[in-house]
Amino acid sequence: MNVYTERDSGSIVADFLSEHAQVLSIAFFFALCVVFFSYTTDTFLTSRNLLNVIRQAAPILVVAVAMTLVIITGGIDLSVGSMVALVNAVAAIALSSGVPWQLVIVGMLIFGGAIGLLQGWFVAYQGIPAFIVTLAGLSILRGIALYLTQGYSIPVGKIPGFLFIGRGTLFGMPFPAIVAIIIALIGYVVIATTRYGRQVIAVGSNAEAARRVGMPSRWTISSVYMVTGVASAIAGLLIAARLGSGSSNAAVGFELQVIAAVVLGGTSLMGGRGSMIGTLLGALTIAVIGNGLILMHISPFFTQIVTGTIILLAIWLNTRIFTARFRVPWARKPEHS
């Protein structure tokens, strides 16, 4: 008679590698970019430039963390760039007309969250595809920003407290970078360890199942758009404080950089699967490439081409190689006995 044996359950190391293959590959790609620009330019690997890179990466990272939640639910938010511009412009108008900067900050965060929640309501409660709702948002919010500023750049004025947010340093780190790292940490904790994070993943993985077990699936979906709204407001404030002015032309193409960072980090556009560490590395990679190409004296317009190409390649890898059943080839050896 045959003796039934069971397969080895596979080494934990190999399972870990399979599970995190995408994060490891983006980590590798990030390292590759750093090495490449270190050799091809003299200035890339100076501490001044590196601080500059993380200062510039900060707004992307802040919004990418929030976008990771949205994409895990299987949605997308195309309006973040316009939201950044609108907050940027409104904040500058408010500051230049003498509103206290602390009040402006709080007001802008609420404003961003409210607009995000409105978009989320259309998506979750009215069943309109996120792509359509936020594409409309992209147009409307940028339009409002243009209308309010008439296309001009509005100086913030000399408000040291506010400008510190974009230009200051704390413990040798640019303040925006500190904000971004704290937000990335919060994002990681939320998605990995909280009940809310579990709801976000469940809704993206199987919305019907989440509903059947009694999760508040509609509220969960709306809420992630509120989070991108707040995150975009933070990014808008960081940019206004760095440039010392607000403009309706800020953050053009920002949504693509953010989405590229998230997708590059291994978060699946089909929902359910995402990684905050991947998003962190993705955002840094996008910032490094942007910075490196400029240092190499390549036309800044070229970065747009590179960003687009990266999105396409990352999604291609995502759908072709890192599918649900992807395994490290040696992860599970069949055992013959």
Binding site: R198, I201, A202, G204, S205, N206, E208, A209, A210, R212, V213, M215, G272, R273, A324
Partner: peptide, 14 residues
Amino acid sequence: SLCNHIDVVGNLFL
């Protein structure tokens, strides 16, 4: 009605 991207424990307690 399982969530593929969540582990066994998480699905049992979904």
